[in-house]
Write a protein that binds this DNA or RNA. Sequence first.
DNA 1: TTTGCGAATGCAAACGTTTGCGTGTAGTTA
DNA 2: TAACTACACGCAAACGTTTGCATTCGCAAA
Lengths: 334, 334
Amino acid sequence: MKKATSLVDVARKAKVNISTVSRTINQTGKIGAETQARVRKVMRELGYKPNRVARRLRARDASTHLLGLIIPNIQNPFFADLARGVEDVAYKHNFALLLCNYDEDEKKEQFYLDVMQAESVDGVILPPIHENDPAVMQVVKNGTPVVCVDRILSDSSLDKVEVDNHMGAYKAVEHIIAQGHRRIGFIAGPADSSTGRERLRGGKDALIAARVPIKSELIRFGDFKQESGRLLTHELLTLAEPPTALFVSNGLMTIGALEAIAARGLKIPKQIALVGYDELPLAAVFNPPLTIVKQPAYEVGRCAAELLLKRIADPKHPPTSLKLHPELIVRKSC
Amino acid sequence: MKKATSLVDVARKAKVNISTVSRTINQTGKIGAETQARVRKVMRELGYKPNRVARRLRARDASTHLLGLIIPNIQNPFFADLARGVEDVAYKHNFALLLCNYDEDEKKEQFYLDVMQAESVDGVILPPIHENDPAVMQVVKNGTPVVCVDRILSDSSLDKVEVDNHMGAYKAVEHIIAQGHRRIGFIAGPADSSTGRERLRGGKDALIAARVPIKSELIRFGDFKQESGRLLTHELLTLAEPPTALFVSNGLMTIGALEAIAARGLKIPKQIALVGYDELPLAAVFNPPLTIVKQPAYEVGRCAAELLLKRIADPKHPPTSLKLHPELIVRKSC
DNA sequence: TTTGCGAATGCAAACGTTTGCGTGTAGTTA
DNA sequence: TAACTACACGCAAACGTTTGCATTCGCAAA
């Protein structure tokens, strides 16, 4: 790595002190107009680019123009969309993005949180592993702005943007019932995740509202990953009295469920109807097109980033809590 | 942002000089065993975490444990997989990852390349916009290790890992011909991208080898994005004599093609056969399951990251060039 | 002429590391 | 005992910024 041109080089060539250069860059302090012009000229000539590392080291209070995003897995389209939302906002404000996949692994989460602090990022966006995530709490205590997405933290003093999970599941199950189904298989998420629980409750509430009895044998708990969707769907379909419709409460598990259904050669929606969660790249052109609950993933990321930037600018700002609405997209699978 | 515990704090409490602490951390220089033990103990007690920013600032030659990844769009599953491959390797070696989406936009690419340098990352992984990317060249000249993925740079002194595009397209078209098709629509990528050109040539070569005449009206050039796949498929299907099979040369455009086909209510493969490029989340369970050319995206990322780490460790190492093999996955769509 | 004052700029410390060099101590050799 | 050597560790500079505190200068007010 060659040494790049630095403040000193510019200062020397422009015959001023480095502080003058610094101030013209940051528009801080009083600098004469013609001096500024000269400095700028030299900067252009030398192709000077401020060193972000040095800047971060010195001014840990000032903005370092670096954001952290810690997500379970970028291969999940939901998080890919979310990440893209964050990135677009970040770019618009000249922020770079540190991206980390923690795979629901607390060890990895801890590692990456440490990295965030060690890199002294301006702020972090993440879905906490569970409501009482001590590692995240610690970061918050250290004074790093944090905004939670998708899942929430019990500490209510944080900015957060979530999607109304209860509503999403409610709409889905309501729709399934409206199609005439009574035996509805429910592939839920982990019981210890807020999203999993809320979607479960939403589904149950829809059942209750329609006076459809809740059968615990029809409810299975997965881990939001593809394989568990496949396995649990098989389980449900081998029941003595199998469900006529399926509600799968996240995107990856929906793929798994489709695998199981395809393996059994079942026709959708005749033999088994299905409502999924999360929009997937091929869902709209699927055969039959998939009825799903669409979460505004990109919007979540966008809002979160904007909240974070706002908080960085004004740390005292009272915490904002956003709840975005999912949308039931009725196609042909149910 | 509270100030974290630093070397000085540790040094003070352990009654040694900061250099001693630094050396015990990095295992450099000679430090007595019992001193090391004492220092380590204090570090644990204080929960000391080295400041990566300061480390990077000081030791721009030493490893800063930060990698940059600049890709067109993380929402493209191909790049999501690739990114994941990079990330896994990075994590295993305690590197963090700076992720950027440049959207095939030279302005953005330039911005992010500047960020990379300003952050003094250890190295960068990217698919160059086109073969003669001056911005990337500049970074290379500055001494930052760069490895190209997916697409290549004319400068052959770089490490690179690509997928054999010619082979992928060849296999695909060969298979289409083997299924008895003679009128084959080809949705190609941009003519000014190496991947686009190589896939086109691969397809043409398969046609030539089978003595199937090449009709230029059946070849359309897209931009590797979904919308162009949709539009061009419509174009091809409105031809007086439409193709009986389609080869779509990337994942996003395949989705678009499927949109067009669905909009026209055509049956796959009876009315129109299709071979896509890139594995997509629902491709295997699609109805019919999609025949596609699968690129080892994760592997590309993994190899690239390993190459990069190797180069960082040994900058003089002669450049390595990897060419991974795509795989034709025959399912039911052709 | 002196004093005061604001505007423009310079000086130097600080951020938290790494590292070349210097120093002290103990052990070895002549 | 003197001279070396090896080892363990301390000192201080350097990385490229930002920023509080001078300092200089010109000019208006007293």
